[in-house]
């Protein structure tokens, strides 16, 4: 029973982070019709920025008391810095690199984001070197709770909570605010909304920035429990592809459902069929594409 509960928590943990990454990817596709291959690297960028700040503050003598570093709540408050950094990067990249490509064939959009993937990969290597960057102090300070007879890290509940909150906020943002209306209108018919006076360029920047913010937030909240390593972006991208393919490209509900499915299958896979865990995930994505090419929630 306790083991089952632990599995459920782990599945939710994966799902939360995956939802943040894949939700951003899906949002960007839904509004701008661009599949951003560099999205995983923005997630990695967020993770690195947060790990870097926390690593600096938790060991820095600038705080005064030697060996203790800044208190946990300060570190926690600074954790979203990675999300802001990723959002800033997004706000910079969209107008400069992506805007020239909206009117061109999809192949070119994939290629330019593939180039971006390579560039961001090396920028991260340049800024933080080839070694993993850890922010585990936050994770450790949270301690753990007992679930039945096993210990489970408390921090993981925070991650699950942030994922759930993000889903709620995003839903409210898209369906209950004026900006959400404009966003949905642009997503459905870009020309029509432009004709009705929507500043499409601005909506695009905002949507892309929001998507990157979500990816960065995913990286920022997961980095205390796993270190930031090179290559984490490419892995995350592929997993979030599976999520959006299952849920439907461009659909946030789909991203949520897809993240839950992938979270559960990953947890089950790691426990019971570790050899084919990834293969099962990819095959699931392929199967969904075959049966419902637009995904479970997608519009054709």
């Amino acid at each position: 029973m306790d083991i089952a509960l632990i599995h459920v928590f782990n599945a939710l943990l994966y799902a939360s982070v995956l939802f943040l990454i894949a939700g951003g990817l899906s949002l960007i596709y839904g509004v701008m019709r661009i599949v951003n291959l560099a999205h995983g690297n923005l997630y990695a960028f967020g993770a690195y920025v947060s790990a870097w700040i926390i690593g600096y503050l938790s060991t820095s003598v600038a705080v005064g008391e030697a060996g203790s570093g800044a208190p946990t709540w300060v570190l926690l408050a600074l954790l979203p810095a990675g999300a802001l950094a990723a959002a800033a990067a997004g706000a910079l990249l969209e107008p400069t690199l992506l805007r020239p490509f909206y009117k061109r064939a999809e192949e070119y959009q994939l290629l330019v984001t593939f180039g971006l993937l390579m560039i961001i990969d090396d920028v991260i290597r340049f800024l933080w070197g080839p070694y993993p960057l850890s922010a585990s102090v936050v994770f450790e300070n949270f301690g753990s709770v007992t679930v039945g007879d096993t210990l489970y890290p408390t921090y993981n509940f925070l991650v699950i909570g942030v994922g759930a909150l993000a889903a709620v906020f995003l839903w409210a943002f898209i369906y209950r605010t004026r900006f959400g209306v404009v966003l949905r209108a642009t997503s459905q018919d870009m020309r029509m909304s432009a004709a009705l006076g929507v500043n499409v360029n601005r909506v695009y920047v905002q949507a892309f920035t929001l998507g990157c913010f979500m990816a960065g937030l995913g990286g920022a909240i997961i980095v205390p429990s796993q270190s930031a390593v090179l290559g984490m972006g490419v892995d995350a991208l592929i997993l979030s592809f599976i999520v959006v393919v299952i849920g439907g490209l461009g659909s946030l509900e789909g991203a949520l459902l897809g993240a839950l499915i992938v979270g559960v299958v990953r947890e089950a896979g790691i426990t019971w069929f570790p050899e084919v865990e990834l293969a099962v995930l990819y095959l699931m994505a392929a199967a969904v594409l075959l049966v419902r090419p637009a995904g479970l929630f997608g519009r054709a």
Binding site: L110, F241, V245, E275, V276, L278, L289
Partner: peptide, 21 residues
């Protein structure tokens, strides 16, 4: 279009993960 690209990518990753595991 994009669905073809993603599907081919997903299938190639199946082989990659099998070779890997």
């Amino acid at each position: 279009r994009i669905f073809f690209s993603i599907l081919t990518m997903a299938l190639s990753q199946v082989l990659w993960s099998l070779a890997f595991k």
